[in-house]
Computed example of a mutant assay.
Amino acid sequence: MKKFWEMKQSVNKKEADIYITGEITRYKSDDEDTTATSFQKDLKLLGEVDRINLHVNSPGGAVFEGIAIGNMLKRHKAHVVAYVDALAASIASVIVVSCDEVVMPENSMLMIHNPMQGIYGNAKELRKSADDLDKIAGSSVIAYLSKAGEKLNEETIKQIMDDETWLSAQEAYDYGLCDVVEEANQMVASVSNKIFESYQHVPKDLIQEKKKTDCYEITDERKQLAEEGRKNLKKINQQLEELKQ
Protein backbone atom coordinates (compact mmCIF):
# COMPACT_ATOMS: atom_id res chain seq x y z
CA MET A 1 0.00 0.00 0.00
CA LYS A 2 1.42 3.36 -1.03
CA LYS A 3 2.36 5.76 1.74
CA PHE A 4 0.40 9.01 1.97
CA TRP A 5 3.53 10.94 2.90
CA GLU A 6 6.87 11.74 1.30
CA MET A 7 10.03 13.01 3.03
CA LYS A 8 12.94 14.81 1.37
CA GLN A 9 16.12 16.29 2.78
CA SER A 10 17.19 19.72 1.49
CA VAL A 11 20.55 20.42 -0.16
CA ASN A 12 22.10 21.97 2.97
CA LYS A 13 20.99 18.93 5.03
CA LYS A 14 19.81 21.20 7.84
CA GLU A 15 16.23 21.30 6.55
CA ALA A 16 13.80 18.66 5.40
CA ASP A 17 10.42 18.67 3.67
CA ILE A 18 7.53 16.36 4.45
CA TYR A 19 4.48 16.18 2.18
CA ILE A 20 1.18 14.72 3.42
CA THR A 21 -1.29 14.57 0.56
CA GLY A 22 -4.60 12.82 0.17
CA GLU A 23 -6.31 10.66 2.74
CA ILE A 24 -4.49 9.62 5.91
CA THR A 25 -4.72 5.84 5.87
CA ARG A 26 -3.76 2.86 7.98
CA TYR A 27 -0.56 2.11 6.10
CA LYS A 28 0.62 -1.47 6.62
CA SER A 29 3.16 -3.33 4.50
CA ASP A 30 3.58 -6.22 6.97
CA ASP A 31 2.56 -7.22 10.50
CA GLU A 32 5.12 -4.91 12.13
CA ASP A 33 5.18 -1.98 9.71
CA THR A 34 2.21 0.28 10.51
CA THR A 35 1.67 3.97 9.83
CA ALA A 36 3.26 5.03 13.11
CA THR A 37 6.33 2.80 12.89
CA SER A 38 6.93 3.51 9.20
CA PHE A 39 6.53 7.28 9.61
CA GLN A 40 8.90 7.22 12.58
CA LYS A 41 11.51 5.29 10.59
CA ASP A 42 11.33 7.78 7.72
CA LEU A 43 11.57 10.66 10.19
CA LYS A 44 14.75 9.24 11.69
CA LEU A 45 16.27 8.82 8.23
CA LEU A 46 16.12 12.60 7.77
CA GLY A 47 18.96 12.85 10.27
CA GLU A 48 19.83 15.79 12.51
CA VAL A 49 17.81 18.56 10.86
CA ASP A 50 17.08 21.94 12.42
CA ARG A 51 13.88 22.68 10.52
CA ILE A 52 11.09 20.59 9.00
CA ASN A 53 8.70 22.07 6.46
CA LEU A 54 5.46 20.08 6.57
CA HIS A 55 3.22 20.58 3.52
CA VAL A 56 -0.35 19.37 4.03
CA ASN A 57 -3.23 18.98 1.60
CA SER A 58 -5.49 16.32 3.09
CA PRO A 59 -9.17 15.64 3.82
CA GLY A 60 -8.22 13.75 6.97
CA GLY A 61 -8.70 10.05 7.54
CA ALA A 62 -7.61 7.54 10.18
CA VAL A 63 -7.68 9.25 13.59
CA PHE A 64 -5.08 7.30 15.56
CA GLU A 65 -2.56 7.45 12.72
CA GLY A 66 -3.00 11.23 12.60
CA ILE A 67 -2.63 11.59 16.37
CA ALA A 68 0.57 9.51 16.28
CA ILE A 69 2.06 11.65 13.49
CA GLY A 70 1.12 14.86 15.28
CA ASN A 71 2.79 13.70 18.50
CA MET A 72 5.96 12.67 16.65
CA LEU A 73 6.26 16.08 15.03
CA LYS A 74 5.50 17.83 18.31
CA ARG A 75 8.27 15.94 20.09
CA HIS A 76 10.82 16.39 17.31
CA LYS A 77 13.71 18.68 18.26
CA ALA A 78 13.60 20.47 14.89
CA HIS A 79 11.47 23.58 14.40
CA VAL A 80 8.45 22.24 12.50
CA VAL A 81 6.54 24.62 10.22
CA ALA A 82 3.24 23.41 8.76
CA TYR A 83 2.09 24.82 5.43
CA VAL A 84 -1.57 24.22 4.58
CA ASP A 85 -1.28 24.11 0.79
CA ALA A 86 -5.05 23.94 0.30
CA LEU A 87 -6.98 21.93 2.89
CA ALA A 88 -6.24 20.38 6.26
CA ALA A 89 -9.47 18.72 7.35
CA SER A 90 -10.43 16.55 10.30
CA ILE A 91 -7.40 14.72 11.76
CA ALA A 92 -5.13 16.51 9.27
CA SER A 93 -5.93 19.74 11.11
CA VAL A 94 -4.75 18.10 14.36
CA ILE A 95 -1.43 17.24 12.71
CA VAL A 96 -1.08 20.85 11.55
CA VAL A 97 -1.74 22.44 14.95
CA SER A 98 0.74 20.05 16.56
CA CYS A 99 3.55 21.88 14.73
CA ASP A 100 5.56 24.80 16.09
CA GLU A 101 4.32 27.21 13.43
CA VAL A 102 1.37 27.17 11.00
CA VAL A 103 1.37 29.06 7.70
CA MET A 104 -1.79 29.31 5.55
CA PRO A 105 -2.42 31.01 2.20
CA GLU A 106 -5.50 33.19 2.55
CA ASN A 107 -7.59 30.86 0.36
CA SER A 108 -6.66 27.66 2.23
CA MET A 109 -8.85 26.12 4.92
CA LEU A 110 -8.93 24.10 8.13
CA MET A 111 -11.92 21.87 8.79
CA ILE A 112 -12.57 20.90 12.39
CA HIS A 113 -15.21 18.43 13.56
CA ASN A 114 -15.87 15.59 15.96
CA PRO A 115 -14.39 12.18 15.07
CA MET A 116 -16.70 9.76 13.28
CA GLN A 117 -16.79 6.02 12.70
CA GLY A 118 -19.04 3.43 11.16
CA ILE A 119 -20.72 1.62 14.05
CA TYR A 120 -22.48 -1.74 14.13
CA GLY A 121 -23.61 -3.60 17.22
CA ASN A 122 -26.08 -3.84 20.08
CA ALA A 123 -27.08 -1.03 22.45
CA LYS A 124 -24.25 -1.74 24.89
CA GLU A 125 -21.66 -1.74 22.11
CA LEU A 126 -23.05 1.47 20.62
CA ARG A 127 -22.88 3.25 23.98
CA LYS A 128 -19.26 2.16 24.38
CA SER A 129 -18.45 3.38 20.86
CA ALA A 130 -19.97 6.76 21.69
CA ASP A 131 -17.87 6.98 24.87
CA ASP A 132 -14.76 6.04 22.89
CA LEU A 133 -15.48 8.78 20.34
CA ASP A 134 -15.80 11.33 23.15
CA LYS A 135 -12.37 10.31 24.46
CA ILE A 136 -10.85 10.58 20.98
CA ALA A 137 -12.42 14.01 20.56
CA GLY A 138 -10.81 15.01 23.85
CA SER A 139 -7.36 14.38 22.35
CA SER A 140 -8.18 16.76 19.50
CA VAL A 141 -9.46 19.40 21.92
CA ILE A 142 -6.14 19.29 23.80
CA ALA A 143 -4.20 19.75 20.54
CA TYR A 144 -6.27 22.75 19.43
CA LEU A 145 -6.17 24.45 22.83
CA SER A 146 -2.43 23.86 23.16
CA LYS A 147 -1.87 25.68 19.87
CA ALA A 148 -4.37 28.49 20.37
CA GLY A 149 -3.41 29.54 23.89
CA GLU A 150 -5.58 32.35 25.24
CA LYS A 151 -7.32 32.93 21.89
CA LEU A 152 -9.55 29.88 22.30
CA ASN A 153 -11.36 28.25 25.21
CA GLU A 154 -12.67 24.73 25.63
CA GLU A 155 -16.33 25.66 25.25
CA THR A 156 -15.71 27.41 21.93
CA ILE A 157 -13.56 24.67 20.38
CA LYS A 158 -16.12 22.02 21.36
CA GLN A 159 -18.85 24.05 19.67
CA ILE A 160 -16.67 24.46 16.58
CA MET A 161 -16.20 20.69 16.47
CA ASP A 162 -19.92 20.02 17.01
CA ASP A 163 -20.78 22.28 14.08
CA GLU A 164 -18.23 20.79 11.62
CA THR A 165 -16.63 24.17 11.02
CA TRP A 166 -14.67 25.14 7.89
CA LEU A 167 -12.24 27.88 8.88
CA SER A 168 -10.64 30.26 6.42
CA ALA A 169 -7.00 31.15 6.99
CA GLN A 170 -8.01 34.44 8.62
CA GLU A 171 -10.51 32.71 10.92
CA ALA A 172 -7.89 30.13 11.89
CA TYR A 173 -5.51 33.01 12.64
CA ASP A 174 -8.13 34.77 14.77
CA TYR A 175 -8.63 31.57 16.81
CA GLY A 176 -4.87 31.14 17.27
CA LEU A 177 -4.68 28.02 15.10
CA CYS A 178 -2.57 29.74 12.45
CA ASP A 179 0.49 31.96 12.90
CA VAL A 180 0.94 33.47 9.43
CA VAL A 181 -1.55 34.22 6.65
CA GLU A 182 0.06 34.47 3.22
CA GLU A 183 -1.11 35.66 -0.17
CA ALA A 184 -3.59 33.35 -1.91
CA ASN A 185 -2.22 30.55 -4.05
CA GLN A 186 -3.79 28.50 -6.81
CA MET A 187 -5.95 26.20 -4.75
CA VAL A 188 -6.18 22.67 -6.12
CA ALA A 189 -7.37 20.36 -3.35
CA SER A 190 -6.71 16.70 -4.09
CA VAL A 191 -9.87 15.54 -2.40
CA SER A 192 -12.16 12.89 -3.86
CA ASN A 193 -15.89 13.44 -4.19
CA LYS A 194 -16.37 10.42 -1.91
CA ILE A 195 -14.55 12.25 0.88
CA PHE A 196 -16.67 15.37 0.40
CA GLU A 197 -19.82 13.25 0.70
CA SER A 198 -18.84 12.24 4.23
CA TYR A 199 -18.97 15.86 5.41
CA GLN A 200 -22.13 17.92 5.84
CA HIS A 201 -21.09 21.56 5.46
CA VAL A 202 -18.53 21.66 2.63
CA PRO A 203 -18.22 25.27 1.36
CA LYS A 204 -19.64 25.72 -2.14
CA ASP A 205 -16.48 27.49 -3.30
CA LEU A 206 -14.40 24.43 -2.44
CA ILE A 207 -16.75 22.09 -4.32
CA GLN A 208 -16.70 24.38 -7.36
CA GLU A 209 -12.91 24.50 -7.26
CA LYS A 210 -12.82 20.72 -7.17
CA LYS A 211 -15.12 20.47 -10.15
CA LYS A 212 -12.84 22.77 -12.11
CA THR A 213 -9.90 20.47 -11.48
CA ASP A 214 -11.87 17.32 -12.36
CA CYS A 215 -12.71 18.22 -15.95
CA TYR A 216 -12.11 20.66 -18.76
CA GLU A 217 -14.83 23.12 -19.67
CA ILE A 218 -16.37 22.23 -23.05
CA THR A 219 -16.21 25.49 -25.00
CA ASP A 220 -17.12 26.28 -28.62
CA GLU A 221 -13.43 26.55 -29.39
CA ARG A 222 -12.79 23.05 -28.08
CA LYS A 223 -15.72 21.70 -30.10
CA GLN A 224 -14.31 23.32 -33.24
CA LEU A 225 -10.85 21.85 -32.62
CA ALA A 226 -12.36 18.41 -32.10
CA GLU A 227 -14.32 18.66 -35.34
CA GLU A 228 -11.23 19.73 -37.29
CA GLY A 229 -9.35 16.80 -35.78
CA ARG A 230 -12.02 14.36 -36.97
CA LYS A 231 -11.93 15.84 -40.50
CA ASN A 232 -8.14 15.58 -40.66
CA LEU A 233 -8.26 11.98 -39.46
CA LYS A 234 -10.81 11.17 -42.17
CA LYS A 235 -8.55 12.68 -44.85
CA ILE A 236 -5.56 10.69 -43.61
CA ASN A 237 -7.55 7.45 -43.70
CA GLN A 238 -8.70 8.21 -47.27
CA GLN A 239 -5.12 8.87 -48.38
CA LEU A 240 -3.96 5.59 -46.82
CA GLU A 241 -6.68 3.69 -48.68
CA GLU A 242 -5.61 5.31 -52.00
CA LEU A 243 -1.97 4.29 -51.38
CA LYS A 244 -3.06 0.69 -50.80
CA GLN A 245 -4.78 0.67 -54.19
Rank of each mutant, 00 (worst) to 15 (best):
E32Y: 13
E32Q: 14
E32G: 08
E32A: 14
D33F: 03
A36E: 15
S38R: 13
S38K: 13
F39P: 07
K41A: 11
D42N: 10
K44R: 08
L45G: 03
L46Y: 10
L46H: 09
L46P: 12
G47F: 02
E48F: 09
R51Y: 05
R51C: 08
L54S: 08
L54V: 09
H55S: 11
V56E: 02
N57H: 04
S58D: 06
S58F: 02
S58K: 03
P59N: 09
G61D: 04
A62W: 05
V63Q: 06
V63W: 09
F64R: 11
G66W: 06
I69H: 07
I69P: 04
I69D: 06
N71M: 10
N71L: 14
N71R: 12
M72V: 02
M72G: 09
K74G: 04
K77L: 10
K77S: 15
H79G: 07
V80E: 10
V81F: 00
A82H: 02
A82T: 12
Y83F: 12
Y83S: 01
Y83P: 01
D85I: 02
A88R: 00
I91H: 06
A92L: 07
I95R: 04
I95V: 15
I95E: 03
V96M: 01
V96P: 01
V96D: 01
V97K: 08
V97C: 10
S98H: 08
C99K: 06
C99R: 05
C99N: 07
D100A: 10
D100S: 12
D100N: 15
V102A: 10
V102I: 15
M104L: 09
P105A: 01
P105F: 00
N107S: 07
N107M: 05
S108F: 00
S108T: 00
M109D: 08
L110D: 02
M111H: 08
M111F: 03
I112H: 02
H113C: 15
M116I: 14
G118H: 15
I119Q: 14
I119K: 12
I119V: 15
G121V: 15
K124M: 14
E125D: 11
R127A: 13
R127I: 12
K128I: 14
S129Q: 15
S129F: 13
A130N: 13
D131Y: 02
D132K: 06
D132M: 05
D134K: 14
D134A: 15
K135V: 07
G138W: 01
G138L: 01
S139Q: 10
V141D: 11
V141G: 02
A143D: 07
A143C: 04
Y144V: 08
S146A: 14
S146P: 00
K147S: 09
A148Q: 07
G149F: 06
